[in-house]
Design a protein around this nucleic acid. Structure first.
Length: 833
RNA sequence: GCCGGAGUGGCGGAAUGGCAGACGCGUCGGUCUCAAACACCGAUGAGUGCAAGCUCGUGUGGGUUCGACUCCCACCUCCGGCACCA
């Protein structure tokens, strides 16, 4: 699409992005313009966007995600930083394997072909990626170090193998980490299939060790919602663990966790999870049949059913009694599936008067309900009621603790229990350890061998990588194809040299992505995971961008990795990403997530071919706030295309237009152009920094419109005009790198526009000569005064009161007050009636 | 249920205590053209008026303030996250 720009005199070049965009992409690449050098003395800045999964084709979302950090990276580079902005591929994972099964292509071939295609497509964005640093996680050069890291974690006791009730995706036939199971419906994060529970022996990373430290976000600039999501996910609860003796003297006490030790006088029964280890021993003979039936049934329940809060409470009495350590009262012990085996101690003291779930259970099974806290000045509650928690409540009917404030009483009760040796303060977390093993082929093999005599042994570091064999059968059998590969299975025990069997599980791809940002500093180092000097120079990442959907997966795991590696002595910083910004999602025109099955995917290639990369970049950034995303509607791209056409028009060298000499351009017009130029510098700089790309582009449009008007007034031969145009190109360069480079060159400026210094606003030139001051009467706009900014307040007041319009609304009354906000407005307040 | 985010013209959005609707899309009118497309110029929140203007207007209802899209209280709707977590 080309546009004839209006020309005075001689012909000007046509605006045709197709004629120059590719040329500049090739030139930048040939010149290594965006290579980040380790020995550059300028201050370093590491800008990173989450690397993609090589699914096949670049879509509009990739453009959206890449353009914003590219703008910021480019601006920082122009401001004098040594910027590293690398890109790579998260290339292990199940889709490649599914493609292999469906189409009989080896995952490596499928993956590499996709990477090849996406690399080419990525180039059309015109981003300043340093491709020399590319990482590909399925490359043995990379996964060798993923395996090496696993071995380090194993040796440090942070990787372990254990039996667990794990989440299993029946479609992908693979276990999932707790973080990868989404929503109430408990669905697989990747394929949306409801997961099942299975008891399996698996490999785990001890993320819980860093639960507390990961609650601390001081020193990192992250969006509040992400910090909150991580905080909630980690789910720290403070309270007490309390031992309840069992009536049968030989049995060990039941330990419960509670956040409300203040309510212990109201504990009228106990509930154990059906899976609790004491159930078998405590159940009396007469209750054994019922209890066994209940336990069996609970085991058969899907987790969805079990976690359904709407469902009526179920449970059964096991025949045994415990002793409330504060009241010495004999209370019955029940089992119920609303108590979860994996949280706290898997047992609770039930306080039905002050806990909704216990209340529902007590009502159902006619158990006693006793109030032990009450609002300080509240009405007495009927016995059968549930009393919700309030800020100001006191203990009642709680022995010597009665009358104490609830929180204070909780501490006092816990202290008393500690004296008695019956309890202590305790903290529990909801976060679980990270399940990292996967029963699939296309991942980094877990570098472990099993020896009949010496058990699980890590593969010695000099034998890494454990390579994936290529000649495997991908028939969907439900087990990893590695399990039937005899040559792969056969291994040697590193301790005794005897025969051993190789682990056939591979690592979760989130293990790969938990450290890729470290590998970019020395991506081809064959001797080590990273060059420590280069790491010290570049890390931590100064700016990280990506989707908020990774809040409790990738972003949490990466923090865990860095903290663990720090404690192992491999690096010396605490957080991977100093500043994080999330992009919103670009939805289809139907307001749904773009997906091939919905057929609402917008292909950027057609748009790029029609309007050019710059227009697509600008349009995506102009839609609205970047963190908001929104439905796709391509009709607006015409607007940015027209804008670029105007930029093209005003930036043509004056000689080309054959403009006649304008004698003495009016000085106020020149000042107005200066003012527009310098206010735009300040505004755009601020907006880019704040990720307000939509308003930055609006300001660039305004400056362009001002330049168009200036040209029409005959200002094009002036220095102010040349400065305005040059400034426009410099400010536009990060967002629309191709047209800026092309016009910069056509104006005879030195290559490259992307290596020029960022313009600096002159506050004197930016200052307004006159301001328009709104005058309100009782808060309603009635007049506008045009004054110089230094007009004294009393003069402004006199002018305002003298105004005919103001006089009309005053109607002879004397103003009660005159409020002046300097430079902003005048408000005249009339007397009240 | 709990925790976040959001609600402004026909549409995307701007304004974080001070002129609501910047910038753009769309629409209408015009210029250019044999005609169209492109481009350019003008208008464009609603109501009312010949007009200057006036009245209303930022999800709803209250409040604070000289002044509220912006702050406070109560609610409604949509989006996201978490959810028998004791």
């Amino acid at each position: 699409m080309t546009t004839e720009t209006p020309a005075r005199g001689e012909r000007t070049a046509r605006f045709d992005p197709g004629s120059y965009e590719r040329k500049w992409q090739d030139r930048w690449e040939a010149d290594g313009l965006y290579r980040a050098n380790d020995d550059d003395p300028k201050p370093k800045r590491y800008v990173l966007t989450m690397y993609p999964y090589p699914s096949g084709d670049l879509h509009i979302g990739h453009w959206y995600a890449a353009t914003a950090p590219d703008i910021v990276a480019r601006m920082h580079r122009m401001r004098g930083d040594n910027v590293m902005f690398p890109m790579g591929f998260d290339s292990f994972g199940i889709p490649a394997e599914n493609a292999a099964i469906a189409r009989n292509i080896h995952p490596a071939i499928w993956t590499n072909a996709n990477i090849e295609r996406m690399r080419t497509q990525f180039r059309t964005i015109g981003a300043m990626f340093d491709w020399e640093r590319e990482v590909v996680t399925s490359d043995p050069l990379y996964y060798r170090w993923t395996q090496w890291l696993f071995v380090q974690f194993y040796k440090a006791g942070l990787a372990y193998r254990a039996m667990g009730a794990v989440d299993w995706c029946p479609k992908d036939k693979v276990v999932l980490a707790r973080e990868q199971v989404v929503g109430v419906e408990r669905r697989c994060w990747r394929c949306d299939t409801p997961v099942e529970k299975r008891d399996l022996e698996q490999w785990w990373f001890r993320t819980t060790k860093y639960a507390d430290e990961m609650l601390d976000f001081s020193g990192i600039d992250w969006p509040e919602p992400i910090k909150l999501m991580q905080t909630n996910w980690i789910g720290r609860s403070e309270g007490a663990e309390i031992d309840f003796a069992v009536e049968e003297a030989t049995a060990e006490p039941i330990r419960v966790f509670t956040t409300r030790p203040d309510t212990i006088f109201g504990a009228t029964f106990m509930v154990l999870a059906p899976e609790h280890s004491l159930v078998e021993r405590l159940t009396t003979d007469d209750r054994r049949t019922d209890v066994a039936a209940y336990v069996a049934n609970a085991r058969r329940q899907t987790e969805i059913d079990r976690l359904n809060t709407e469902r009526e409470k179920t449970g059964t009495f096991i025949g045994a009694y415990a002793i409330n350590p504060m009241t010495d009262e004999r209370i019955p012990i029940w089992i119920a599936d609303y108590v979860l085996p994996g949280y706290g101690t898997g047992a609770i003291m039930a306080v039905p008067a002050h806990d909704e779930r216990d209340y529902a259970f007590a009502r159902r099974f006619e158990l006693p309900i006793r109030h032990v806290v009450a609002p300080r000045d509240g009405e007495p509650q009927p016995d059968a009621a549930y009393v919700s928690h309030t800020d100001d409540e006191v203990l009642i009917d709680s022995g010597s603790f009665s009358g104490m404030a609830a929180d204070e009483g909780g501490l006092a009760i816990t202290a008393r229990l500690a004296e008695l040796g019956r309890g202590e303060t305790a903290v529990t977390y909801r976060i679980r350890d990270w399940l990292v093993s996967r029963q699939r082929y296309w991942g980094a093999p877990v570098p472990i061998v099993y020896c009949a005599e010496h058990g699980a042994q890590p593969v010695p570091e000099d034998q890494l990588p454990v390579l994936l064999p290529e000649d495997v059968d991908f028939a969907p059998t439900g087990v990893s194809p590695l399990q039937s590969h005899e040559a792969f299975l056969a291994a040697t025990c590193p301790v005794c040299g005897g025969p051993a069997r190789r682990e056939t599980d591979t690592l979760d791809t989130f293990v790969d992505s938990s450290w890729y940002f470290l590998r970019y500093v020395s991506p081809r180092d064959a001797e080590q995971a990273w060059d420590p000097e280069a790491l010290a120079r570049w890390l931590p990442v100064n700016l990280y961008t990506g989707g908020a959907e990774h809040a409790v997966m990738h972003l949490l795991y990466s923090r865990f990795f860095v903290k663990a590696l720090r404690d192992m002595g491999h690096l010396s910083f605490d957080e991977p990403f100093e500043k994080l910004r999330n992009q919103g999602q670009i939805l289809g025109a139907d307001h749904q997530r773009m997906s091939k099955s919905r057929g609402n995917v917008q292909n950027p290639d057609d748009l790029t071919a029609r309007y050019g990369s710059d227009a697509v970049r600008l349009f995506l950034m102009f839609i609205g706030p970047w963190d908001q995303g929104g439905p796709w509607n391509s009709s607006g791209i015409e607007g940015v295309h027209r804008f670029l056409g105007r930029v093209w028009g005003v930036a043509q060298p004056a000689a080309l237009r054959g403009t006649a000499e304008i004698p003495g351009a009016p000085e106020e017009l020149v000042r107005a152009l200066h003012r527009a130029t310098h206010t735009t510098i300040a505004g755009v700089t601020q907006d880019y920094e704040a990720f307000h790309f939509n308003t930055a582009i609006a300001k660039l449009m305004e400056l362009t419109n001002a330049i168009v008007r200036a040209r029409e007034s005959g200002l094009s031969p002036t220095d102010a005009y040349a400065e305005a145009v040059d400034t426009l190109l410099l400010l536009l360069a990060p967002a629309a790198p191709h047209i800026s480079e092309e016009l910069w060159q056509r104006r005879g400026r030195p290559y490259s526009v992307h290596q020029q210094a960022w313009p600096v606003a002159d506050p004197v030139l930016a200052a307004a000569d006159v301001i328009e001051l709104p005058v309100q009467v009782d808060g309603k706009l009635r007049e506008k005064l045009v004054v110089t900014p230094d007009t004294p307040a009393d003069e402004i007041e006199r002018m305002a009161l003298a105004s005919e319009h103001v006089q009309r609304y005053l109607a002879g009354r004397t103003p009660r007050r005159v409020i002046q906000i300097p430079g902003k407005l005048v408000n005249i307040v009339t007397p009240r009636d």
